[in-house]
Design a protein around this nucleic acid. Structure first.
Length: 485
RNA sequence: GGCGACAUAGCCAAGUGGUAAGGCAGAGGUCUGCAAAACCUCCAUUCUCCGGUUCAAAUCCGGAUGUCGCCUCCA
């Protein structure tokens, strides 16, 4: 496959350092609050990359950490009068609830920062020994940025230009404003661990370097995270790891684009902020996951409930088609009539296009487009009396069903039984529209009686009443069903 | 101020040198007691603007305009 590598600023053929083994590290959450839709995007993107690599036959060692000690966690703990560890544990639990609903697969390893303090102390000591770091009298340890030649290569920054903007905050004992903390001395009342430099805790950037090194040989094949992490977080990781080991840290850097609200960055300070829960209170998780995949992972993605509703229509359309294919395949008589070769050829091409889209820097938006084309192909066959009854038609339906099942394992959507999902989606939309399903059923029963009596005036009146409730009625040979308008 | 990304139909959105995927909305049709849903078909001579390179540009280069991000915790 080809992957866009932030380090090179271009797409490159992806080749793991060691045959079929892929070592992938993605920066996880800092556990101090509920996850928002930006976390959802990042999680879904790297989940699809993980699934895709496995699908392509790679053996993937996927590492995603938890930052469970940090300024923000300490602050939150102080606010609510709890231990930092309690806060971290609580939000790690909440994180899993959200991730499971979004059908995010568990990584191979999920290391926690607080369980790797010895490794972090060791890495810090090695950096001091090599002259890349220094301890201050008050017990902080800083990385000496100017001691590392490659600083700035990932984010494309020039060290001297950075200098002008950097400042030493009052009370800091840095030799250079650019230097960043590897180890922070504990302030009174803060959680701490013993170290050669006194009681303290690791700096944020250090965690990822230490845990990468522990769970993967270096260089990592892929290191991922949100775009905003590229500087300074990832730049600092590169500096720490490469200065300590003398080896390249990661071969491919993958950064996902941001979720925006009205073309502006979503952030707590702007107040334009949605948690995953806010959205899943109203929409099905699969709707959100589908929506997140309709745009290329590197593009900024504008979130709105209107856009999400449009995505919902897409999911519905695909599941409806899958449902129809199931219905066709439920038949047991098939004719040996001729079947046009072009249609089979069309599916050949579409299968190829899907594979190419995914291989081209994980182009899920393009891949989804090809799925719609496959769906339309199925629709064309189902529409034609001769084609849908032919053995060739059956074979095509079966192949499409198998393709969709295969693709579903990569995308993590369309894995449900169509009929079941469609009902669930209807009820979800009904709940959103404030429709009472019991009341609908009551009216539907009354209408069925009226139709049986050939009292079409009455049955139409009931249908109008339902329409006023935003309920649409579908008459089928098996009776009436309903959906939300 | 420094670094970077983006600009494609009414809207959303793929497409990085070979003559514009897909979705939503819209129009027509099949079906139906009438409908609706579903399904089928149609829907950008053109890719923000101006120059340039090339047999060939939405794609490459230069410039303009606009939008956004990073440089401070942030997915």
């Amino acid at each position: 496959m080809r992957l866009y590598n932030t380090l090179k600023r271009s797409k490159e053929a992806f080749t793991p350092a060691n045959d079929n083994d892929v070592n992938m590290y993605v920066c996880g959450i800092t556990a101090y609050d509920l996850c928002h839709i930006g976390h959802a995007r990042s999680s879904v993107v790297f989940d699809v990359l993980y699934r895709y690599l496995k699908h392509e036959g790679y053996k993937v060692n996927f590492i995603r950490n938890f930052t469970d000690i940090d300024d923000k966690i300490i602050k939150r703990a102080a606010e609510v009068g709890k231990e930092a560890s309690e806060i971290a544990e609580k939000f790690i639990g909440e994180f899993y609830v959200d991730m499971d609903r979004l059908n995010i697969q568990r990584p191979t390893v999920e290391p926690k920062c607080t369980e790797h303090i010895p490794e972090m102390i060791d890495l810090t000591q090695r950096l001091i020994d090599k002259g890349h770091a220094y301890a201050t009298p008050s017990g902080d340890v800083y990385f000496k940025v100017r001691s590392f030649d490659g600083y700035g290569k990932l984010s494309g920054r020039n060290i001297d230009e950075l200098e002008s903007g950097a400042r030493i905050a009052p009370g800091e004992e840095k030799e250079d404003p650019l230097d960043f903390a590897l180890w922070k001395a504990a302030k009174p009342g803060e959680p701490f661990w013993e170290s050669p430099w006194g009681q303290g805790r690791p700096g944020w950037h250090l965690e990822c370097s230490a845990m990468s090194e522990k769970y993967s040989p270096l260089p990592l094949d892929i290191h991922g995270g949100g775009q905003d992490l590229s500087f300074p977080h990832h730049e600092n990781e590169v500096a720490q790891s490469e200065a300590a080991t003398g080896k390249p840290f990661a071969n491919y850097w993958v950064h996902n684009g941001f979720v925006q609200i009205n073309s502006e960055k979503m952030s707590k300070s702007l107040g334009n902020f949605f948690t995953i829960r806010d959205i899943l209170d109203k929409f099905l998780p699969e709707t959100l996951r589908y929506f997140l995949l309709t745009m290329h992972y590197r593009s900024p993605l504008d979130f709105s409930f209107d856009a999400l509703e449009e995505g919902e229509k897409g999911v519905k359309r695909i599941y409806s088609a899958l449902n129809q294919i199931d219905a066709e395949l439920a038949k047991d008589k098939w004719k040996k009539s001729p079947f046009p070769e072009e249609l089979t050829k069309e599916l050949d091409d579409l299968e190829k296009h899907f594979a190419e889209a995914m291989a081209d820097d994980l182009n899920t938006a393009g891949a989804l487009g090809h799925i719609f084309s496959v769906i339309r192909l199925a629709g064309r066959v189902a529409e034609d009396k001769n084609l849908r009854k032919a053995e060739g038609g059956r074979d095509l339906f079966q192949r499409i069903k198998a393709d969709m099942a295969d693709w579903a394992t990569i995308l993590g959507i369309f894995e449900r039984k169509p009929a079941e999902f469609l009902l669930e989606l209807r009820d979800n939309r009904a709940a959103r529209a404030g429709i009472d399903p019991a009341k609908v059923q009551e009216l539907l029963d009354a209408r069925a009686q009226a139709r049986k009596d050939k009292d079409f005036e009455k049955s139409d009146a009931i249908r109008d009443e339902l329409a006023a409730m935003q309920v649409e009625v579908h008459d089928t040979p098996q009776g009436a069903t309903w959906d939300v308008l």
